[in-house]
Amino acid sequence: MSDTMIEINGATLVADRSGALWWPAERLLAVADLHLEKGSSFAKTGQLLPPYDSRATLSRLSAAVGRFEPKTIVCLGDNFHDPLGPERLDAESKGIVAMLQRKRRFVWIEGNHDAAAAAVLGGESAPEIEIGPLVFRHEPRQGRARGELAGHLHPVAVAVTRARRLRRRCFVSDGERCVLPAFGAYTGGLDVFDAAFAPLFPRSFQAFLIGRDRVYPFAHSGLAAE
């Protein structure tokens, strides 16, 4: 299975089929929008969804970490679905987080919902960090932002194939910046043709759709609006 590469502001990254972005040169793994404890957040409103979403998300993350063995892990914000999420995380999941943090730098970028993660779970906390040509933050800046890796928007794209349209989570990039797909097990998606993306990619963009076996690059013209 061939890796799918994305060039961003001169850095070469790998769009992994788990939804994580791997930067081999820095041995850095970035994931966006984990939305941990989203299931239990909904339970408060009476929808008793399977309470395994945090475990599912974290096991997927540890599987990717096992494959890449990064020196640094960056979670690009909205790490928890609500501010009380870190408190609700069960012991098993906390154990996985602790394991992920061992012997490496672990950065919680702060998102809209979650400044509290580091306080409860350890690791660094920062509104954004800059490493070489790349800057990691939660919400994409309006206008041009060279080297930005962000989340927040949960991009999905609809590929037009010979037989039918297929909707998949995706990375979106124009070579200058990249929006990562949401990594959380219960996170929905926003179509890349939604107005929210337009100011970020004024010229054009490529979407990297996550399939079962690998990540498939699509030119803007091969996609349909949802």
Partner: peptide, 19 residues
């Protein structure tokens, strides 16, 4: 079109074509 991997094959085909 049927088959176990139909969706995956379709994605691959559409994607490679375009690239």
């Amino acid at each position: 079109p049927v088959g176990m991997d139909a969706n995956e094959a379709l994605l691959a085909e559409a994607s490679d074509d375009l690239i």
